[in-house]
Amino acid sequence: MTDPLPLSFAAHLARDRRRSVHTVRAYQATAARLIAFLQAHWGGAVDAAALGRVTPADLRAFLAKRRGEGLGNASAARELSAVRAFLAFAGGPDAAPPRIRGPRVKKGLPRPIAPAEAVALAEEVEDGAREPWIGARDWAVLLLLYGAGLRIGEALGLTGAVLPLGDTLRVTGKRAKTRIVPLLPQVRSAIEAYVAQSPYGTARNAPLFRGAKGGPLSPGVIRRSVRAARVQLGLSDRTTPHALRHSFATHLLGRGADLRALQELLGHASLSSTQVYTAVDAAHLMDVYRSAHPRA
């Protein structure tokens, strides 16, 4: 039998908090996992009153179990955020969920964002939006940076003329140079979902991505949203919109992409601009070597 508390929590998120479908699903799953863990941890049934007695030690034990199941820092931070929201919901308006420090990503040399962290970041930005269509907009913009390697200025420079979308996208980059980039189905779906919700239409000569009042969307809006999301997730302050493009390049190179092809995808004028990613990928390989090799 499905526990009613996670179901009520999901209904609250969808109805009162206007959270996205995937966030509601993820938070409901976290709530169910927490209850199952506490039932085994305490050896008894768990109801709303029992959730009010959850201690920091209980939460640390829950997170330790989840980390043992392979959760990374960003996912663990998001799990903790969902737990806090669930405990606050179960405890009512006067509830004060126990606070524990979330996982942090060590600072160091610039490095690409892991795929799971990139998705978690985009989801957190979407969830933090004050209206569903704004959340859909921000999700689409960030997926363009990570999934297509666009600069933020290139993404925000798109107009309604790119519609209807196909398998590729024509992008105007620096020095008015145009290039063709492949459009992943997930990125295309994100843009189409935003277009369907946007209250401002998609005239061919108007910006595709609009601000809250209908004007062109400012890069600063996206940067501020990313800054707030990375704090929530405990990500490094090097996690910026441009870092998503950087990650796109590094991950492609790590999977065998040719430097010349990568140069074209990124819109670099010279190959030397692209070669920086070979150093980054080598640094990542050295990190793996040092952490995994028994003689390192």
Rank of each mutant, 00 (worst) to 15 (best):
L144I: 13
L145E: 03
L145K: 03
L145P: 07
Y146H: 11
Y146S: 06
G147H: 12
A148Q: 05
A148L: 04
A148Y: 04
G149R: 10
G149V: 02
L150I: 02
R151W: 11
I152P: 02
E154V: 11
A155M: 12
A155T: 08
L156V: 03
L156R: 01
L156M: 01
G157D: 11
L158S: 14
T159H: 12
T159E: 10
G160W: 13
A161S: 14
L163I: 12
L163W: 15
L163P: 02
P164G: 03
L165E: 00
G166S: 04
G166F: 12
T168M: 03
R170E: 06
R170C: 01
V171K: 09
V171C: 05
T172L: 04
G173F: 05
R175I: 02
A176I: 03
A176F: 12
A176N: 15
K177D: 03
K177N: 06
K177S: 07
K177A: 11
R179M: 09
R179K: 14
I180C: 06
I180T: 15
V181F: 14
V181R: 13
V181H: 07
L183F: 07
S189H: 15
S189V: 07
A190K: 04
I191N: 00
I191L: 10
E192M: 05
E192Q: 13
E192C: 05
Y194L: 02
Y194E: 01
Y194I: 04
V195G: 02
A196R: 07
A196T: 00
Q197A: 15
Q197I: 00
Q197E: 15
S198W: 07
S198L: 05
P199S: 13
Y200Q: 08
Y200H: 15
G201V: 08
G201T: 06
G201H: 09
T202P: 01
A203D: 14
A203N: 05
A203M: 08
R204P: 15
N205K: 09
A206N: 05
A206F: 06
A206K: 14
P207R: 05
P207C: 07
P207M: 05
L208E: 12
L208T: 09
L208K: 11
F209A: 00
F209D: 01
F209M: 01
F209T: 00
R210L: 00
R210A: 06
G211E: 08
G211N: 12
G211P: 13
K213Y: 10
K213S: 02
K213I: 00
G214Q: 11
G214L: 07
G215V: 04
P216L: 08
S218D: 13
S218T: 05
P219I: 07
G220P: 01
G220F: 05
V221E: 14
